[in-house]
Design a protein around this nucleic acid. Sequence first.
DNA 1: ATACAGATCGGT
DNA 2: CCGATCTGTATA
Length: 210
Amino acid sequence: MRKPDRNFYSKSGVELAKALLGCHLVHSSEHGRLIGKIVETEAYMGAMDKAAHSYNNRRTKRTEVMFGPPGYAYVYLIYGMYYCANVVAADQDIPQAVLIRALEPVEGMEKMAVLRYGKQLEECSRREIIGLTNGPGKLCQAMNITGRNNGQDLCGRELYLLKGETPPAEDVVNTTRINIGYAEEAIHFPYRFYIKSSPYVSVRDRSKES
DNA sequence: ATACAGATCGGT
DNA sequence: CCGATCTGTATA
């Protein structure tokens, strides 16, 4: 598996959200190397998307990274307690991004258990093991991703991606996004993608699964 | 200066 | 379903 170049990220949020499924997210930190396979993503499409922080091209200190070049990390604090990790998409001045909503642990699972629950992996229940990375806040805790990672270059050496195998189309579900009830018409935009066969998906849409 | 809501999570 | 917990953002 290879680290994609900048050009890989230079596509629309929706296109990148699809392309990220199956890729590995790697965090090389003081805790060692932590790796997860991306199994659920959501696109945030900027100017026309009422669910996006960058809706109407709102440009603030927080949203600034999204206005920069693609392939950088946008990490923000939500509800004063959890971090969410995004990959900046599209080109300079087009503030689109992809939220990573779920991972499957690939490497460093023992460290993930300590980071999430403060205990050893062997002591974790089946439910806790799924709960390691099946949500945007959870995966940041497990991967030790914090505000410190905001603005980091994913073409760099600390936080980066490895291009994986694209899942077959029949295993990919395309549906609406989670927890954006305030976003009016954007509630219905089909900007969420997930790998149906993965047990780590955060919220399933049974009506779109066959 | 102040008010308020939120791309979440865990427990009830 | 509620509360935790706090920052970004808007309004005055």
